[in-house]
Amino acid sequence: MNVSGFSKGGATDAWNSLLHDHEALLQRPGAHHKLLVEEANSLHRRELIGRDELSDLLEQADGALAYAVEALLDEHHDE
Rank of each mutant, 00 (worst) to 15 (best):
R51F: 09
N2D: 15
M1K: 01
A68D: 03
E38Q: 14
D74M: 14
G9N: 15
A66R: 15
L65T: 05
P29A: 03
M1W: 04
N16T: 11
N41F: 04
G50C: 06
A14R: 00
E39Y: 07
A71K: 15
S4K: 10
K34N: 12
V69T: 12
L48G: 04
S42D: 15
D13A: 10
S7P: 05
E47C: 07
V69R: 15
W15Q: 03
L72W: 05
L48Q: 10
V69Q: 14
Q27P: 00
H77P: 01
A66N: 12
V3C: 10
V37G: 00
L36W: 04
D62R: 14
L57R: 09
L36P: 03
D13H: 08
A11H: 03
A31I: 10
D62I: 07
E23W: 08
H20F: 13
G50K: 06
S7F: 01
G30F: 08
V69C: 06
V3Q: 04
H22G: 08
K34G: 10
G10N: 06
L65Q: 09
S55H: 11
L26V: 04
N2A: 07
N2M: 03
A40S: 14
L25P: 00
D78F: 10
A68Y: 01
E39A: 15
D56G: 14
L48D: 04
R46E: 10
L57I: 02
N16M: 11
A66F: 08
S4W: 09
A31H: 09
N2I: 06
H22Y: 11
G9W: 08
H44C: 12
D56S: 13
A11F: 01
L25K: 02
L73F: 10
H32F: 02
A61S: 10
L58Q: 14
L57Y: 11
M1I: 08
E59V: 09
D21P: 01
G63D: 12
H77A: 13
E79G: 15
A61E: 03
L43C: 04
A31G: 13
W15V: 00
H77E: 14
H32R: 01
S42L: 15
R28H: 12
L43W: 00
